[in-house]
């Protein structure tokens, strides 16, 4: 059982979360962990351990596909709302929790329309406000200087790294409370990766981040807390420095030293 640090402010808490795609096998097995406010939490583990599945529970992405049962809770603070509850509309959850995907997936629209899409969905009409938000989000994503002169050109003209930062800007434009990053740099070159990592460290001042990564060095560099998962179980959770220097579990140690994975 993971102890919650009372000195830190909680943003979300996963409580005994189990999830399965089909009836036979559980992909998540009673996972419990805290997500602290304005910290970066990294989910690591070998392929198929359930880290992406866990991440996609946070914005109810699984609801898009054939009916799935969530067991357990993800409580969103401060109002302690269980976002997995059937009474909560997934759209409401997604309006508060943003997500950036593994492969950059900008819409085939202009750069401007990509960034402000979240506002369009919410029916925001005021042009000055939309433009302000667009600039701010692009600044936050470190893309403003590169695109400010061509906001009306197609997002598909950008490089892969720029596209991913555009997707981050798109997620930030609606000021989400939590930002989910699903292996955001796995499709990027080293320079773009470094760029995005700097960005993550910069962003955590304002927003809580949960990141899934295959890259252990990345987890060590950007995260404050790390959760190691294996075959659907949460094996170990703790401050990143502790997980990487002095893991309590044998399996965690084998994984971070590269003996399997």
């Amino acid at each position: 059982m993971v102890e919650v640090n009372p000195n830190l402010q909680l943003r979300a808490e996963v409580k005994n979360l189990s999830f399965s795609y089909s009836t036979e096998k559980k992909v998540l097995n009673s996972v419990s962990m805290p997500i602290y406010d304005t910290k970066v939490t990294a989910l690591i583990g070998p392929s198929g351990c359930g880290k992406t599945t866990l991440l996609r529970c946070f914005n109810r992405m699984h609801d898009l596909y054939k009916v799935k049962e969530y067991q357990g809770e993800i409580t969103l603070y401060p109002e302690q709302m269980n976002i997995l509850s059937k009474d909560i509309d997934p759209i409401e959850v997604r309006m508060r929790i943003g997500m950036v995907f593994q492969k950059p997936n900008p819409f085939p629209k202009t750069i401007f329309e990509n960034v402000v899409y979240g506002l369009r969905v919410r029916g925001v009409k005021k042009t000055s406000f939309i433009q302000e938000r667009c600039e701010k989000a692009l600044q936050q994503a470190g893309l403003w200087d590169e695109v400010k002169d061509r906001l009306n050109s197609s997002a598909q003209m950008l490089s892969g790294g720029q596209q991913q930062r555009l997707c981050i800007a798109r997620a930030l434009a609606t000021e989400p409370e939590v930002l989910l990053l699903d292996e955001p740099t796995s499709a990027l070159d080293p320079i773009s990766t470094a760029h995005v990592e700097e960005l993550i460290i910069e962003l955590k001042k304002d927003v809580t981040i949960v990141i899934v990564t295959h890259n252990l060095h990345q987890a060590a560099r950007v995260s404050d807390y790390t959760a190691f998962m294996y075959l659907g179980d949460l094996i170990e959770y703790g401050p990143t420095t502790k997980i990487f220097t002095n893991p309590a579990d044998k399996r965690t140690e084998s994984y971070i030293t590269g003996r399997f994975g």
């Binding site: 914005n59 992405m61 898009l64 759209i91 997604r94 309006m95 943003g98 997500m99 995907f101 997936n105 900008p106 819409f107 899409y117 979240g118 969905v121 919410r122 997707c167 798109r170 997620a171 609606t174």
Partner: peptide, 9 residues
């Protein structure tokens, strides 16, 4: 998924 993740209906 990108559209839904932005809160689109």
């Amino acid at each position: 998924e990108a559209a839904y993740a932005m809160g689109a209906s």
